[in-house]
Computed example of a mutant assay.
Amino acid sequence: MTRAVCPGSFDPVTNGHADIFRRSAAIFDELVVATGTNPSKSRLFDPEARMEMLREVCADLPNVTVMGFDGLIVDFCREIGAQAIVKGLRGGNDYEFELPMAQMNSHLTGVETVFVAADASLGYVSSSLVKEVALLGGDVSGLVPEGVLARLQQKVAERRA
Rank of each mutant, 00 (worst) to 15 (best):
D11Q: 06
Y95R: 04
C58W: 03
G147H: 01
A82V: 04
M51W: 02
E98P: 04
A49K: 05
V133E: 15
T113N: 10
G71N: 09
D46F: 09
T35Q: 02
S141L: 12
R22H: 00
M53D: 06
A34Y: 01
P12M: 07
G71W: 09
Q154Y: 09
V114L: 13
V86S: 13
L149C: 10
D11L: 05
M1S: 12
G138P: 09
N63I: 00
K131T: 02
S42A: 14
A49T: 14
L31D: 00
V133R: 13
G71I: 03
G110N: 08
G92E: 11
L89G: 04
V111I: 08
L44I: 14
R159P: 01
V66F: 10
V133P: 14
E48M: 10
I85M: 01
G123F: 07
F28G: 01
V133A: 15
E96L: 12
V140K: 01
L99H: 09
A157Y: 06
E158Q: 13
G8Q: 05
D46S: 13
V156A: 14
R160S: 15
L143R: 03
S141R: 15
V125N: 12
I85A: 02
E132V: 10
A102N: 08
V140E: 03
G91E: 02
A118T: 13
V64S: 12
G142E: 13
V13G: 00
F97W: 14
V86L: 13
A4M: 08
V111C: 01
N38P: 03
S9M: 10
D60N: 02
A59V: 08
V5D: 05
F21T: 02
P12K: 06
A120W: 13
F115E: 05
A59M: 10
N93V: 15
K155S: 12
G123H: 06
S40A: 15
I27D: 01
S9D: 04
L135P: 00
C58N: 05
M53E: 06
N63L: 02
R50E: 02
S126E: 05
V32L: 10
S40M: 13
H107I: 07
G68M: 05
V33R: 00
G138N: 10
F115V: 07
S128H: 08
I80Q: 14
E158H: 05
L61G: 10
V33L: 04
N105R: 11
A4Y: 04
L149I: 10
S106H: 10
A102V: 08
F21A: 06
L152M: 07
K41H: 08
N105T: 12
Q83Y: 08
L135S: 04
T109K: 10
A120K: 13
L54R: 01
H17E: 02
V130P: 01
L135R: 14
Q153L: 12
D94L: 01
E79R: 11
V125Q: 12
E96G: 03
P7Q: 04
G142I: 06
G110M: 07
P100G: 07
L143E: 05
V148G: 01
P100I: 10
L72T: 01
N93L: 11
G36T: 11
R43P: 00
E56G: 15
C77F: 05
K87M: 02
K41G: 05
P7W: 03
L99F: 13
F115Q: 07
A34H: 00
V111R: 00
R43N: 06
G88V: 03
A161H: 14
A25K: 05
S24Y: 05
V74M: 04
L108V: 14
K41F: 09
T2Y: 09
